[in-house]
Nucleic acid binder design. Sequence first.
DNA 1: GCATTATACTTCGAATTCGAATTATTTTCC
DNA 2: GGAAAATAATTCGAATTCGAAGTATAATGC
Lengths: 138, 138
Amino acid sequence: MRHDLKTLTILFRAHKAMLDVMRDDVRQHGISVTAFGVLEALYHKGPLDVKTITERVLVADSSMSYTLEKLGERGFIVREKNPDDGRGKIVKLTSSGEAFMAAIYPAHHERLRKRLDVLDATDEATLRVLLKRLGKGA
Amino acid sequence: MRHDLKTLTILFRAHKAMLDVMRDDVRQHGISVTAFGVLEALYHKGPLDVKTITERVLVADSSMSYTLEKLGERGFIVREKNPDDGRGKIVKLTSSGEAFMAAIYPAHHERLRKRLDVLDATDEATLRVLLKRLGKGA
DNA sequence: GCATTATACTTCGAATTCGAATTATTTTCC
DNA sequence: GGAAAATAATTCGAATTCGAAGTATAATGC
């Protein structure tokens, strides 16, 4: 019990379960989970630089460039030079991207939230504490 | 606190943290996390059919075929027809695969286990219970 | 026992991922 | 104030991923 890695297996399984819900959901709208994550960040936080988005969405820098390119082609975002730091870019939702999220986000949120509701409020809070500790590492 | 999806963010972050530890570790041995997962299953459980491995390793069937092909090319596994079910195959470690795992597994295990040790035994047990509930879903 | 349906696995093509190298800009610090 | 190191983002090629379709075999039900 104390020195096996079963906890990891269970963590990965829970992650996969939630990821699959997300994937099934966003795929109907022709978008990847990563791309959705980008739109979601912008939808909730407003314009952000690429670095900040990447930190939130947890992919490699190069994957983020790819994803932003795709979202740009689709007309959901634009990238502008950051006036405060010439190295960076600011990413914004277009009105089309905004409309897209307004249309699909509520149902998406609802579906995931329902899934989380297998835990009561206390358990959910406990889970957060423990996972945070694990995520931070040493 | 009760109807946001922050718990998901934290879950994904913890998952990513552990995955990155795994990736850094196994990449030094020129192997992917998925391929390592296959070898690990076989190393601990003995010969298994493809379906069983896929359930443990959590990838699409087609990804498993790809991974097994690669592991075969590398001489770490063989696939044999399942005598009890003509549709299936039994996957076995070769002696080379066995030796590979014997060489690298202990340090890998140790590294991950250390990471889990940020939680004490009680917390780890609690985490398992909660994650299991989440993984099962409705 | 034969047709239907389900299951195990593979193949295929396209999308996404990563890591390493590159470019451009900013920060550090002497 | 200029060289060296750090940071932001992109490009590139290769590896891995997925989902859909295909093949082969087994189980089901009539």
